[in-house]
Design a protein around this nucleic acid. Sequence first.
DNA 1: TTCCTTGCAAAGGCTTTGCACACCG
DNA 2: CGGTGTGCAAAGCCTTTGCAAGGAA
Lengths: 144, 144
Amino acid sequence: MPHCHTLIAALRQQGCRLTPQREMIVEALAHGGCHMTAEEVLEIVRQKTQAVNITTVYRTLDLLVERGLATRTDLGEGRIVYATIRHGPHLHLVCRCCGRVIEADASLLALLGETIHDRYGFTPQLEHIALYGVCRECNETRNT
Amino acid sequence: MPHCHTLIAALRQQGCRLTPQREMIVEALAHGGCHMTAEEVLEIVRQKTQAVNITTVYRTLDLLVERGLATRTDLGEGRIVYATIRHGPHLHLVCRCCGRVIEADASLLALLGETIHDRYGFTPQLEHIALYGVCRECNETRNT
DNA sequence: TTCCTTGCAAAGGCTTTGCACACCG
DNA sequence: CGGTGTGCAAAGCCTTTGCAAGGAA
């Protein structure tokens, strides 16, 4: 897991203390997919030890986001997900039917971002956004 | 306020009972902008009477959404906003700095929607979506 | 030793639910 | 009158905060 070592080194460089909890949380996040909730991170860590509290998970994830090492995306409907920066920009396609999350290429948004900037003077943060809709499978099920 | 009469008529047609509370809530939503929280709807209704409860506002707004007369958009960060269907499709540009919400033309998204559909088989619901970023004013303030 | 981190419990904010009473149709 | 709608209070859910104890450096 070379990536999580990078993150841990970065934390140390920034003057943050390294604790077993932080290491495990970073490792869990680095192992996981592109969108993990705090609860999911905790579950993975709990496979190793019970000695981590959900509060610490939240605090560590926030720390990573503050330090620019992770991103936080609000998928709406109470779902807040985190990912390490290694998981580059992407677009979350969230199915309202089955809850599945598809990761799409964020470059699809580049043109949109420019247009919005030109027209409204608004600079959208398009690194990790979520769009709701219905996935292929659910669409097919519906029409059956 | 012809629009709220249409909505009220539609509710009645669908077999819903008309109460003073429902009428006032519908009227408030129709008067308001394109993104009102339940709390904001309540405030407007309260200018007329104290005899409405936030619970009823939530229930009525949910009713309108169920019946297809209003939309519900989760702007993230706990902000859920409602609008009547008369407020056609639009894009919410939410400033992370000042919280301001700019309404943009939803047609900007049409091409994106098609591309996503073709490439991922995912049908995005682009009627009322939210994008986060920084507005022109906050950008200028930052650079001063 | 210093003071950053952690865990626990409790608070917070927003939304939903249970239940008895009210009132529309 | 029957059954839907309302208000109140309380519960739920996820996240944050306060505070004392623990442990990294």
